[in-house]
Amino acid sequence: MEPLTPTEQERYRRQMMLPGFTVESQQQLKATTALVTGVGGLGGTAALYLAAAGVGKLILVRGGNLQRDDMNRQILMTDDWVGQPRVFKAQETLQAFNPDIEIEAVCEYVSAENIDTLVQRADIALDCAFDFAERDLLNAACVRHGKPMIEAAMNGMEAYLTTIVPGQTPCLTCLFPEKPEWDRWGFGVIGAVPGTLACLAALEAIKLLTHLGEPLMGQLLTMDLARAEFAKRRPYHDPNCPVCGDRTRQTLSTQLSTIATPTRPIASR
């Protein structure tokens, strides 16, 4: 892995003081490309903390222009940018915040035409899109290409978070085989709610990449922020899931074959 520059060593010194977080951990972040979809109140804040941690490259994906009612939660934006493509302002803000990393802005919504190319270029994805159509496309592409995905979503004062590793954990379709009705314009939001979830999502990505702590693999963290109630649940991992079932069976078959194969003893001399 590429060594850290003196500036990077200084910038990230405090996190490298954490037990279990080494110079090699920081180098792993530097070598990582993270895809963040839906760069708004949730995705934009998550991207900020990935940038702060030193993830080497961020690919930001979001179509559409900034609106004034986005301003109560989209902390990468400024009021003078209203009416312009928000993803370019996010890129500008993050690049000024940490000039040591690379930021790429893709002014498009996630679609069947662009998702495979985007996922193949990344090491990890953060799913912060505003609807299930985009989320399902990202989930399926991450399963196809074997890329881990941090799944984070909120509605009103409630939120959920999980880490999806294809073949090892339930995917988004396992969690929500039937998609709930959702109106992107029809829910209220206090900016601190997506902000709270975004910090946890960024932390999940950092933990998974650096082997720090215990990521939410196979666990769904649910949050009722109106009551400050948090719970962990074990979602069903559907072996016949139309999206991840084949990869899960393939992973299990490989694991069983490894266990069944005896290790050749080392000849003594």
Rank of each mutant, 00 (worst) to 15 (best):
G195Y: 00
E214M: 00
K207S: 02
L212C: 04
L209M: 08
K232S: 10
K207Y: 03
A228C: 02
A226P: 08
A231H: 15
L220S: 05
A198S: 13
A205K: 13
L220P: 03
R234F: 06
R233F: 14
P215F: 05
G195H: 04
K232F: 06
A205D: 14
T222F: 08
T196E: 07
L221V: 09
H211T: 11
T196Q: 04
R234E: 10
Q219R: 02
G213R: 02
A228L: 11
A231D: 05
L225A: 03
R233W: 06
A231K: 15
L216Y: 03
K232E: 12
K207T: 01
Q219K: 07
L221T: 10
L208Q: 12
L208W: 10
M217V: 13
L216T: 10
G195K: 05
R234W: 09
L220C: 05
R233Q: 11
M223G: 14
T222D: 11
Q219V: 12
L209H: 11
D224W: 13
R227W: 14
I206S: 14
A202F: 03
L212N: 12
Q219M: 11
P215K: 15
A231F: 04
G218T: 09
T222W: 04
G195T: 08
K207D: 07
V193K: 03
A226Q: 12
D224G: 06
C199T: 01
G213C: 08
R233N: 07
L203Y: 13
Q219N: 13
T196R: 03
D224N: 12
A205T: 00
L203N: 13
C199F: 04
I206P: 13
G213L: 02
L221N: 06
L225H: 12
L225M: 05
T210D: 15
K232M: 01
V193G: 10
M217S: 14
L220I: 05
P194S: 05
L225I: 03
A198H: 10
P215G: 04
A205E: 14
L225G: 09
T196A: 09
M223R: 03
L221Y: 06
K232V: 00
M223C: 14
C199R: 09
R234Y: 04
A201Y: 00
L220A: 07
L197G: 11
R227E: 02
R234Q: 12
L225Y: 10
L212K: 12
T210E: 13
R234C: 01
M217R: 15
L216G: 14
L209E: 00
L225V: 01
T196W: 10
K232H: 06
M217G: 08
R227K: 15
E204L: 03
F230C: 02
M223N: 09
